[in-house]
Nucleic acid binder design. Structure first.
Lengths: 250, 250
DNA sequence: CTTTTCCCGTTGTCCGGACATAATGACCGG
DNA sequence: CCGGTCATTATGTCCGGACAACGGGAAAAG
């Protein structure tokens, strides 16, 4: 029973990343009803050394997917349960992937649009002639008609083919990019600010003009550092708390 | 020239943590004017294996102190330069440690106080009879009289002796805890919300009542998970952007 | 002088092994 | 039934070694 999943010997993606990807997929698909395997079991199963296994697990742990305790073992992190209604944890890529759990959103395609001046001013190096592919949507909780977020998403022009295949009503758009286009996130920058609600945001979020709104601008870069997505989100200040955890590695 | 810094053989703190601490101190003190040493040099210098060195460097990299490139070497991250006036990066412990670079603050001791209901409601498990040691201060940029932040800090009662020795006008208070009391940060949780300015916050920050304010509540836990510090910060929405970076590990 | 090629140093990946330490449950004695 | 002891098991720490991939500069070619 060795090497049930051979982990393509091509060293294109390092083995520990292949392993992490495989395990991540299985965890998210509920593939470990009997609990997460031990390091030794994974070594035997995949035919790799403990180093490779631990490197993969370290990554999954950094993503918040699993938690490990010396002597006890590795367990799958609840993922739900801790994210109560108003809380949107987001401190690492893993939580980014699960972002929006328990909430609903359907995006409306905006077609090719100019980037709003807001986004351009934040990262000035996009050429003015570029038109990005835009989407817009309101995020709501089931059972509560008041929206939790007004989101605008913009994808780089080179992703136009992929954007056509996006499922506009499934969780986050960018989570699909990994599977559809093989785009891996390398870095995300976030700018968070408290601003008064503009007229459109106030109307869509059900607020009075000028009431506090939490605006989050995210820039998604791939592994080689290229910007491929920009999102601008407005949250109502009175019913949204941005909650995040910072774990000192380990 | 081996083992110039013996790294106390007591395995109380693991060797790679001792090494990381030593290197962190040297980097922050400008101890590497000729550039950061290579892994091999560090191995020889401290008499440890490359594993230990790489583990320490991995930590410093996660803290954002150093950056590494295959084939090129390890370099010290600029630390300044990137944090323009209004930006306060904070996505990991390292940036947390450098928090407030370029700004000034002097804390005023509040003595033993009850925790504000706000903080208690966020983490309900503090006993009501406990009185924490409080500090309060306004953070300003040199050359700009308008404050960037109104901060209240509360330390757990067991830290009273340490609090008496805190330098109230030096950077962040919690950064001193590591040196004074050997307290290492294990986890930080943050809650960020956009709220209308209350009367006191408006007055101190020079805002109109009700104008948007970014409120950040942080809970600092040590390595064993015990809460030892809570901070509540109000930032003026019109001139403060909370900027953070999330790097997928590596 | 410019361009290309090659070598060397550095970090990244991966292996095998060893011991330490924490958590768990079984066993045993009160 | 309760409590302590002990072996087992799992992760954490640490070592030595090996090769690959990348950068950069020196050397060689144009």
């Amino acid at each position: 029973m060795t090497e049930c999943v051979p982990l393509a010997k091509d060293r294109e993606p390092p083995r520990y990343l292949q392993l992490a990807g495989d395990l991540r997929r299985k965890v998210l698909a509920g593939g470990f009803p009997a609990g997460f395997p031990t390091e030794a079991e994974l070594c035997a199963h995949y035919g790799v050394s403990r180093f490779t296994v631990r490197e993969a697990l370290r990554r999954l742990q950094a993503e918040g997917l699993i938690s490990r305790r010396r002597g006890s073992g590795t367990s799958i992190q609840p993922a739900a349960a801790r994210g109560r209604a108003l809380h949107q944890p987001l401190s690492n890529i893993g939580e980014l992937l699960q972002y929006g759990r328990g909430s609903q959103i359907t995006y409306r395609p905006l077609g090719r649009v100019d980037l709003p001046g807001l986004a351009v001013s934040h990262l000035g190096q996009t050429r003015a002639d570029e038109q990005w592919i835009g989407f817009s949507g309101l995020r709501t909780l089931p059972g509560d008609p008041r929206p939790l977020a007004l989101t605008e998403v913009f994808f780089a022009p080179r992703l136009e083919a992929v954007c056509a295949r996006l499922d506009l009503s499934s969780g986050t758009l960018f989570a699909q990019l990994d599977e559809l286009a093989g785009i891996n996130v390398g870095k995300v920058t976030q700018d968070i600010q408290a601003i008064p609600a503009g007229s459109e945001a106030a109307r869509l979020l059900g607020l009075r003009r000028g009431s506090p709104v939490l605006r989050v601008i995210r820039c998604y870069h791939d592994l080689s550092g290229r910007l491929f997505e920009i999102s601008v989100t407005h949250h109502p200040g009175d019913r949204f708390v941005y909650s995040m955890h910072i774990d000192v590695e380990g």
